[in-house]
Write a protein that binds this DNA or RNA. Structure first.
Length: 626
RNA sequence: UGCCGGAUGGUGUAACGGUAGCACAGCAGACUCUGGAUCUGUUUGUCUAGGUUCGAAUCCUAGUCCGGCAGCCA
């Protein structure tokens, strides 16, 4: 083992991929033992919803392993249930995966030739089905070549129409033949029990099941019935194909599990070709086998299915090495929900503006909100991979987002809730451009000019008529620094008929600009501002967490009851002119306020920005304490 | 009460029989033309009880607590 001198955080394994975990340890041991030529993992979402931050953990694990061990990761649609799946979801899944792994593991992404199903080959004199990927054009050298951001248009394969994800539905024919083989071996039978009776016969965890009266049909009869199921002779729910295992097994998944059910339904990929569809437990292990997956990594709830996963593979005459299943704990994040069913409910009941609403924990929502893919990856690396089913504090996630954005976001000035300020010792037509730093964390980001004039806007929060102790901003008679500009003193507070402060009249210390005679004068506070004449209004959407409690779907009660009524506030802000040129995908820090990005609905004549996340605010904390 | 799995500060993790460490959060301070960032310091932890051992978070035994599993969902 080589010494790793990398100073990157968590240089815990030879490849410098961040800290290892029990699954990587297993893979590393397999590699060391020479058990596989290449490591092949897979990410197998069911296209019945949008991907969320929980999927990101799985994507980072599966692609991260492929990356670390110079293998590949197959993107596969686990589409064996036509009644719940849609093409909208298969498309969104591809976009989200490309976005998340761009510039990091896109060279490990494996897709297959469009329209090309598994090949039937002869291995060791036995019939074998095999689905090959098409070589990843970025795979040479096995290193990432793209910078995050160029990923939206199809990922590493570019705009190519020649490739597509793997689909479990591509394997329906081989799967059917495997099922026939199981019947021939006396390991599967057609059962006429109704769904209700199937349940009753299964027994309970602490009570053995009862064998189906159809369990001992002859192979010939089973073959005939199964063929007729496929031919569409029977209505939905009238018959199933079941594995013949053990109705008394302490593991209920071994009590003659259903392998195929009848569903007269149109499938988004295979159309009307089939009216019988394989169940997860039958399809998944064999899909893994057909694709040559070495490590099939899934979440904890499948742990009890592993004996069945192995049973199916063990009871067929498969010439190649069998994949192995490993389980890890799914991600639970405080103040959010991860259930696809509940996320769908939020969308259907219009509690949010769609799957990509910036408040959603979906990858598309986070992308729209301005959260960088790199921040999500960093978060996933930091939370690690274990079998402990905990609840991760969303603060861990927010930290990763701020850390990434602080490093990269250009600083800009913008006032969310404008309050007019008049500098009375400046002429009406005063106008000058002041130099401002684009990113103090990155000198290479350079500087820009921002316009200054007699009339300005500052944030309403930055003035208080009767401030509490330790309030460092503007107050009657008080002084404050205008960032990049002058120190001003508030001489007069102008109010409207209702007593609301509508304007501040101030005098500026005209020598206090950077380089000026009094530039080094110390004043307590520095606030941001924009020129009234040379700023522009924009809609800004201020997002807060969607739920008010740490575990919205924990315990009983309706999770909708915990929706945060203040999760979205819309304001009309005044922004510095340079922001008018902001492009989708860019992110900015409005100084002292937070990180923002143009929304996808933003138009030149109607700019719209989303607040990604606030800056840490130690004043707010102090103020709350009183 | 059947089977499978888990338990290390408030949270997420590391330590693979040999000094319980890291990150987040918290607290205190320094610095600051962002009350941001940065830097210092700091509070808090091995589920319990036995055993093996010179030595146990780690191995053994018993218990406690938590999670998952009885879809023709995945």
């Amino acid at each position: 083992m080589t010494t790793n001198n990398s100073d990157s955080p968590g240089a815990g394994n030879p490849a410098g991929e961040g800290p290892s975990d029990f699954i990587r340890d297993i893979v590393a041991a397999d590699v060391a033992a020479g058990r596989h030529q290449t490591i092949v993992t897979r990410f197998p979402p069911e296209p019945n919803g949008y991907l969320h931050i929980g999927h990101a953990k799985s994507i980072c694990l599966n692609f991260g392993i492929a990356r670390q061990f110079r293998g590949r990761c197959n993107l596969r649609m686990d589409d064996t249930n036509p009644t719940k799946e849609e093409v909208e979801y298969v498309e969104s899944i591809q976009r989200d995966v490309h976005w998340l792994i761009a510039g990091w593991a896109d060279h490990c992404l494996a897709l297959k030739a469009r329209g090309v199903g598994p090949a039937t080959v002869e291995t060791d004199g036995r019939t074998d089905f095999h689905q090959e990927p098409v070589p990843n054009p970025r795979a040479e050298g096995r290193s990432p070549t793209a910078e995050a951001g160029d990923a939206m248009a199809g990922g590493p394969y570019g705009e190519s129409a020649e490739v597509e994800p793997f689909y479990a539905s591509d394997y329906f024919q081989p799967l059917y033949e495997y099922a026939v083989e199981l019947i021939r071996r006396g390991q599967a039978y057609v059962c006429d029990l109704s769904p209700e009776d199937t349940d009753k016969y299964r027994g309970a965890p602490d009570r053995a099941g009862v064998e189906s009266p159809f369990r001992h049909r002859s192979v010939a009869e089973n073959l005939d019935l199964f063929a007729r199921m496929k031919a569409g002779e029977f209505p939905n729910g009238t018959r199933t194909l079941r594995a013949k295992i053990d109705m008394a097994s302490p593991n209920v998944w071994l009590r003659d599990p259903v392998l195929y059910r009848i569903r007269h339904a149109t499938h988004h990929q295979t159309g009307a070709d089939w009216c019988i569809y394989p169940m997860y437990d039958f399809a998944h292990c064999l899909s893994d086998y057909v694709e040559g997956i070495t490590h099939s990594i899934c979440t904890l709830e499948f742990e009890v299915h592993r004996p069945l996963y192995d049973w199916v593979l063990d009871n067929l005459d498969l010439p190649r090495a069998q994949p192995r299943q490993y389980e890890f704990a799914r991600l639970n994040l405080s103040y959010t929900i991860m259930s696809k069913r509940k996320l769908l409910q939020l969308v259907r009941e219009q509690k949010v503006a769609g799957w990509d609403d910036p408040r959603m924990p979906t990858l598309s929502g986070m992308r729209r909100r301005g959260i960088p893919a790199a921040a999500i990856r960093e978060f996933c690396a930091r939370i690690g991979v274990t079998k402990y089913d905990g609840l991760t504090d969303v603060a861990l996630f927010e930290h990763a987002v701020r850390e990434d954005l602080n490093r990269r976001a250009l600083r800009r000035m913008g006032v969310l809730r404008p309050l007019k300020v008049v500098i009375t010792n400046l002429p009406d037509d005063h106008s000058e451009d002041l130099e401002a730093v684009n990113n103090p964390e990155d000198p290479a980001a350079g500087t820009r000019r921002i316009p200054f004039g007699r009339e300005l806007f500052i944030d309403q929060d930055d003035f208080m008529e009767t401030p509490p102790p330790k309030y460092f901003r503007l107050r009657p008679g008080g002084e404050v620094r205008l960032k990049y500009a002058y120190i001003i003193r508030c001489d007069e507070v102008v109010k409207d008929a209702d007593g609301r402060v509508v304007e501040l009249r101030c005098t500026a210390d005209l020598d206090s600009k950077r380089g000026g005679a009094t530039a080094d004068r110390k004043v307590k506070g520095t606030i941001h501002w924009v020129s009234a004449a040379r700023s522009f209004p924009a809609e800004v959407r201020l997002y807060d967490r969607l739920f008010t409690v740490p575990e919205p779907d924990g315990g009983e009660g309706d999770f909708l009851a915990h929706l945060n009524p203040e999760s979205l506030e819309v304001v009309t802000a005044q922004l510095e002119p340079s922001l008018a040129a902001a492009q989708p995908g860019e992110c900015f820090q409005l100084e002292r306020t937070g990180y923002f990005c143009p929304d996808r609905e933003s138009r030149p004549d109607r700019p719209v920005f989303n607040r990604t996340i606030t800056l840490r605010d130690s004043w707010a904390k102090l103020a709350k304490k009183g």
